[in-house]
């Protein structure tokens, strides 16, 4: 999928006379995909167990945790950017790691943004798996892990939706990655922390609306591609 998108971008200038080099575009797409895919992958690994634990256990404050997760879904990305910048900046608590203005800083802020979305939607999905399915798995001698796997299998369509929603949130947000990444591209046009959204912001600032529109089209196309790919994985499993 990634290769296909990059190929398509490379091939484009052959028939459209673009006002920029394809190298610039491909490196931006690469940074965008790297940051958002890694962020969503880590976020999914973190979110699923949390959704399972919160979904299938009773503990005091459970409704508070659920409320926090749901609030986090709509958390403003600029605020996340500011907080992450504050944490990662050399004068902040994690300054010695030297992460500010790196792609990794962007991954962290997108992780923070995507995690409530993925956790929240997965939570809804796993809690909707009927009780008797879980009981049956348990009755057949399954361990806790087996039961969890059965639930994930049953809820995979909802979980795929959760991952997609998280990916959509991550790849399309501009506020936090601009702050923590710095929108850096080297002088030879290779992107370091410039992704599609921050590049669009920059091109629009410079009045180059055609380039901005073109980048916007790539962004939409990427989201569609990823949706189609994940939809195929998750959607076909609807049958019981």
């Amino acid at each position: 999928m990634t290769g296909g998108a990059l190929l398509a971008v490379d091939a484009l200038p052959a028939f459209v006379d673009l006002p920029f080099e394809s190298h610039y575009i491909t490196s931006i797409v690469r940074v965008s995909l790297y940051v958002s895919l890694v962020a969503v992958a880590i976020s999914t690994l973190f979110s699923l167990p949390v959704a399972m634990v919160v979904g299938f256990s009773e503990f005091p404050g459970k409704s508070l945790v659920t409320a926090i997760i749901n609030t986090g879904m709509g958390f403003p990305s600029v605020v996340v950017g500011l907080v992450v910048l504050f944490m990662l900046s050399s004068s902040g608590p994690f300054g010695p790691l030297g992460l500010v203005f790196t792609p990794e800083a962007m991954i962290i802020s997108q992780f923070v943004l995507a995690t409530p979305v993925i956790t929240g939607v997965s939570l809804a999905a796993v809690t909707s798996v009927e009780r008797n399915v879980r009981d049956a798995a348990f009755a057949m001698g399954g361990t806790r892990l087996d039961v969890a796997l059965v639930v994930i299998k049953e809820a995979r369509f909802g979980i795929a939706t959760a991952v997609l929603a998280g990916f959509g949130r991550a790849i399309s947000e501009v506020g936090s990655v601009l702050i923590v990444g710095g929108n850096i591209a080297y002088a030879d046009g290779t992107s370091y922390t410039r992704n599609l959204t921050t590049a669009i912001q920059l091109e629009a600032r410079q009045g180059r609306f055609e380039t901005a529109m073109f980048l916007g089209a790539i962004l939409v196309a990427l989201v569609l591609l990823v949706n189609a790919a994940v939809g195929r994985l998750g959607g076909s499993g609807r049958t019981r």
Partner: peptide, 20 residues
């Protein structure tokens, strides 16, 4: 290679104040 971060003058100095 130079990692250039384009901000306003105020923000550029503030970023440097934070040691970044």
């Amino acid at each position: 290679p130079v990692q250039a971060i384009a901000q306003g003058t105020g923000a550029a100095l503030e970023t440097a104040r934070n040691g970044d």
